[in-house]
């Protein structure tokens, strides 16, 4: 069964081995903006004075992603360095999506992204964004994201019909995503 988590709920989650050892903490969540799939996590050490770790956790090494912890088989699940994450983060395009504006292909700003909604399961993926609406001053909306035209540090450009499928809460987002998927299939 899928559950829906806000990215802010996953950030700072502990990374725990199946043996019960707390080995790290999630720092950044890196995803493929076109497919929506999670790629990897960057990590921080545990403890008050621990800084970022120069090791990444690739999604394929994750045993389970839960609401309270990211589970891995053992300490070997962590990469020896953070090169895989850096390659994805430092490559051109993409960027930090929190704070970016969401705009339709017909030039309407839908709002500013305040969080990312992730559907958990065997292959968790980003299904939508929490957005503070520009048109409805300050109102929080949940907008599904399927086939974005582009994603950059400043802007996420989505098909124009995305605006027709907003939800008022996370619970309504899967239905909105399904509606958008059908509309896009009809249009192609």
């Amino acid at each position: 069964m899928s559950t829906y988590l806000r990215a802010r709920e996953i950030r700072e989650e502990p990374v725990v081995t199946l043996a019960g050892e707390d080995i790290a903490q999630v720092k950044d969540i890196v995803f493929d903006p076109m497919r929506g799939t999670l790629t990897c996590f960057t990590l921080s050490g545990r403890g008050l004075l621990a800084g970022p770790l120069k090791r990444a956790l690739l999604w394929k090494k994750v045993h389970a992603l839960g609401p309270d912890a990211v589970m891995v088989r053992d300490g070997k699940a962590l990469e020896e360095d953070d090169q895989a994450a850096r390659e994805s983060i430092d490559a051109p395009g993409g960027g930090h999506v929190i704070g970016a504006r969401m705009m339709t292909e017909d030039g309407t700003v839908l709002g500013t992204i305040t969080d990312v909604i992730i559907e958990t399961g065997k292959a968790p993926q980003v299904i939508g964004y929490e957005v503070v609406s520009t048109a409805q001053t300050g109102r929080t909306l949940f907008l599904p994201v399927i086939k974005p035209s582009s994603v950059s540090e400043e802007m996420v450009v989505v098909p124009a019909c995305t605006a027709d499928f907003s939800a008022g809460d996370v619970v309504g987002l899967p239905a909105a995503a399904e509606g958008l998927r059908r509309r896009l299939e009809q249009e192609t």
């Binding site: 921080s44 008050l48 800084g51 999506v97």
Partner: peptide
């Protein structure tokens, strides 16, 4: 100040991964 700096370094973000340019194409247009 040490605790504040460490807290800032530890707080993360959600990052859309980029792609290496292929054949001189720029950006992530589909």
């Amino acid at each position: 100040s040490v605790v504040a700096v460490q807290a800032r370094r530890r707080s993360g973000d959600v990052i859309a991964g980029g792609t290496r340019p292929r054949g001189g194409r720029k950006g992530r247009q589909t």
